[in-house]
Amino acid sequence: MKTPALTFLYVPADRPERVEKALASEADVVLVDLEDAVAPAHKDAARANLVRLLADAAGDRAVQVRINHPSTPWHAADVAALAGLPLPVGARVPKVESPAEILALAAALPGRDLHPLIESALGVERALDIATASPQVASIGLGEADLRSDLGIDDEAGLTWARSRVIVAARAARLAAPAMSAYPNVRDLEGLATSCRAGRALGFRGRTAIHPAQLATIRAAFLPSAEEVVRASEVLARVADATAAGVGAIALTDGTFLDVAMVERARAVLALAGA
Results as ranks from 00 to 15, higher is better:
2 K>P: 11
2 K>M: 14
3 T>K: 15
4 P>C: 02
9 L>M: 04
10 Y>T: 06
16 P>Y: 11
18 R>I: 00
19 V>H: 01
21 K>P: 03
34 L>V: 00
39 A>P: 00
41 A>P: 00
49 N>Y: 04
49 N>W: 01
55 A>Y: 13
56 D>T: 11
58 A>I: 03
59 G>Q: 10
63 V>E: 03
64 Q>G: 15
66 R>K: 05
67 I>W: 10
73 P>C: 06
73 P>F: 12
74 W>L: 02
76 A>Q: 15
76 A>W: 11
80 A>V: 04
84 G>I: 01
89 V>K: 11
91 A>P: 10
99 P>L: 02
101 E>V: 09
104 A>T: 05
107 A>L: 11
107 A>Y: 12
108 A>Y: 13
108 A>F: 12
112 R>K: 09
114 L>C: 05
114 L>D: 02
114 L>G: 00
116 P>W: 12
119 E>H: 07
119 E>W: 12
121 A>T: 09
126 R>L: 06
126 R>E: 05
128 L>I: 12
130 I>R: 10
133 A>E: 06
134 S>H: 15
134 S>G: 04
134 S>D: 12
138 A>Y: 13
140 I>K: 14
141 G>C: 06
147 L>K: 03
153 I>S: 08
156 E>Q: 13
162 A>S: 14
163 R>C: 02
163 R>P: 00
166 V>T: 05
178 P>M: 10
183 Y>F: 15
186 V>L: 10
186 V>S: 10
189 L>R: 07
193 A>L: 06
197 R>H: 12
198 A>R: 15
200 R>K: 15
203 G>L: 01
206 G>S: 09
206 G>A: 00
206 G>T: 02
209 A>Q: 05
212 P>A: 00
214 Q>W: 10
216 A>C: 01
217 T>S: 04
217 T>A: 11
219 R>I: 05
222 F>K: 02
225 S>L: 09
227 E>S: 08
228 E>W: 07
242 A>F: 07
244 A>P: 03
245 A>K: 12
249 A>L: 12
249 A>Q: 10
250 I>K: 02
251 A>S: 15
252 L>Q: 08
254 D>R: 09
255 G>H: 06
257 F>C: 00
258 L>N: 05
260 V>T: 14
262 M>F: 08
262 M>S: 11
263 V>K: 09
264 E>V: 04
270 L>I: 09
271 A>P: 04
273 A>W: 14
274 G>C: 07
274 G>E: 04
